[in-house]
Simulated scan of single mutants.
Amino acid sequence: MSSTNEEIDLSIIVVAYSVKELVDECFTAVRNSTDNLLKEIIYVDNGSTDGSVEMVKEKFPEVVIIESPTNLGFIRANNLAYTKARGKYILMLNSDAFVGTESLQKTCDFMEQHTDCGVLGARLIGRDGKLQPSARYFFSPWQNFIVKMGWSNNNISWLKGVDNMQQDHSRILECDWVPGCYLLTRKKIVDEMGFFLRDDFFMYFDDIDICYRIKKKGWKVLFYPNDVIHLGGANMEKMDKITEKDLRVTKLHLESEYIYFRQNYNLLYVLLDFSLIILFNFSRILKKIFLFKKKEIQEGWGNIAMATSILIKTRFGNKSIH
């Protein structure tokens, strides 16, 4: 770790909400890293009630802790942490992502050696070793639609999806974006852009959005074949239990989806995305009518109403509602 006056190689940002055991495992993995980097961990606690802060203070006194009395959301908490970051490199690390002993050193070394790389991701695997989507591709409203419909086929250009799990993940891959559970970037790039993560998002689309903005500046986004264990969704599961009525996963995702398309593309993309969401749900409703699935039919109409409501509340992707 580092002292106050030393130049920092790496700032690791971790945000969590009432997942004490995962935070413990995440920080332990970082501590067990065999790197020789000068690094700092900045931990934003989003109003945990399970003793997470006390545990971190006791077991990881080197960690910089920022306590929020309320749940700021993943994106805004990361932005709060970024204001304290001093490293040459910034690593977004989920509390349910556990680095290998060589992950930090190898990915930072790669960035040092490849000065055209603006963002670097790792090979994400479950505890069972199963590969997770790690080198991803930008999607349009059409691609979003075909994935939902189950029509994606990477062998047909107009049916390509967001992921190609058949490609060789044992080598360096150039892609469009990497998941934010392990996303390494250069602080100088973020400072030049003027902001870290888009504050309009409460959760979701932060990783694809920052990669889009960095790639638009001419930097490469690359995948590096070093394993990082990722469990997936732990913070969201906790939050959804507490705020089921107001902040359901689907609402947050859809809100960010509209904002992403509006801020990075244009209004036409938002309208096309909305239209295809309606078409997808209509197709499901028709199918369920023939199968006499009353509950699923009601859910379909509910999804259409929700998509319409969020479109209006966000002013067609122009503002956040959370």
Rank of each mutant, 00 (worst) to 15 (best):
E21T: 12
I75S: 12
D45H: 00
S48W: 00
N71K: 06
N71Q: 09
E67W: 11
S68K: 12
S52L: 08
I66Q: 04
E21A: 13
L37K: 00
N46G: 02
M55L: 15
F60Y: 14
T70S: 14
P61I: 03
V64T: 15
T70G: 07
N71W: 03
T70F: 11
F60I: 00
G47A: 08
D24C: 13
E54K: 13
V53K: 03
K57Y: 09
I42H: 01
I75L: 11
F74K: 14
I75G: 06
M55V: 09
E58D: 13
E54I: 08
V56W: 04
D45E: 09
K57C: 12
M55F: 06
K57H: 12
G47K: 01
A29M: 09
P69E: 09
A77E: 02
D24L: 15
P69C: 01
P61R: 01
R31E: 15
V56G: 04
I75V: 15
V23S: 08
I41L: 10
C26V: 07
S68G: 06
V53F: 00
V64A: 07
S33C: 11
K57V: 07
Y43Q: 01
V56E: 06
L37I: 00
E21Y: 03
K57I: 06
F74E: 10
S68R: 12
